[in-house]
């Protein structure tokens, strides 16, 4: 069978390879902004600052257009000017949203051009309108993680929410973050036990109506427009988060709409 795949992002190439392995003929189509030359592709983040001829121009933009000033409204998904080609919106494209910030890629290669090795599995309730369920998908997460590079490490909530696939090791953190994580690891048991402090990514409830893991509080809505039914560790709740400067917490269910 001849199959035409539109889009050469992470999903497109994964599907194309799967189809090729099954003996199909694949035509992969893509269009969009072209990536420029990548300077020093083997250099680390810190090394770029020392080796590039114009590091400020690379990280902040040639005329500082990437600097986020006080009172400006930065995108939640901040990205440097060197990645603008991924998100530069064509004049004819229109989109609007409420309580969420959808991402669109306009580059050849899709979001793989700005890949950070982070990707989250569907929850069972995400798939209620699909002709397959979560258990049918589960075995394939390992393959996807290996092919496109999805990394993960256990955090403090892993005991309540086990991993859903065998992910690759996480990308190495910068030296400062590595030091902080190492220091935290040495105090993890004491902080988890005595203070009820957990360092973890907020998780979505496994399924509607399911019994919540002991010791975790359900939260109706979290900052940044995330949907409801998230959990925070003991000691955290929206009322306390409201008291934190600069943390917007909206009550009620997050709504979103999208017009394209």
């Amino acid at each position: 069978m001849r199959i035409v795949v539109v889009g050469s992002g992470a999903s497109g190439v994964h599907f194309a390879l799967s189809a090729l392995e099954r003996g199909h003929e694949v035509i992969l189509l893509d269009v969009g902004n072209q990536r420029g030359t990548v300077p020093a592709p083997d250099a680390t983040f810190s090394q770029l600052k020392d080796t590039l001829p114009d590091p400020a121009g690379y990280f902040l933009g040639l005329e500082g257009e990437g600097v986020v000033y006080p009172a400006s409204r930065p995108s939640y998904y901040g990205h440097p000017p060197s990645k603008h080609y991924v998100f530069d919106v064509p004049a004819e494209f229109r989109a609007s949203a409420e309580s969420m910030e959808p991402m669109f890629s306009f580059a050849k290669g899709g979001f793989a051009e700005a890949w950070t090795a982070g990707c989250y599995a569907f929850a069972p309730e995400d798939l209620t309108d699909f002709p397959f369920d979560y258990e049918a998908l589960r075995p394939h997460y390992d393959t996807v993680a290996r092919r496109i590079g999805v990394g993960a490490a256990d955090d403090d909530l892993a005991r309540f929410f086990p991993r859903d696939a065998s992910y690759l090791p996480p990308l190495p953190p910068d030296p400062h973050s590595a030091w902080l994580l190492a220091r935290y690891a040495g105090r993890r048991a004491a902080l988890n036990g005595a203070l009820g402090f957990y360092l973890a990514l907020a998780r979505r409830h496994p399924e509607p109506g399911a019994r919540q893991p002991a010791g975790l509080h359900p939260v109706r809505a979290l900052p940044l427009g995330l949907p409801d039914r998230f959990h925070l560790p003991p000691g955290s709740n929206p009322h306390r988060m409201r008291a934190l400067s600069g943390v917007p917490v909206r009550a009620g269910r997050a709504r979103h709409s999208l017009r394209v």
């Binding site: 810190s46 902040l60 500082g64 600097v67 000033y69 030296p175």
Partner: peptide, 19 residues
């Protein structure tokens, strides 16, 4: 903010700022 961004992005101060 602009000056701090420039300092953080380039030598000779970026290593100190990020340490």
């Amino acid at each position: 903010v602009l000056q701090l961004a420039v300092l953080e992005s380039s030598p000779p101060a970026h290593a100190w700022i990020n340490s």
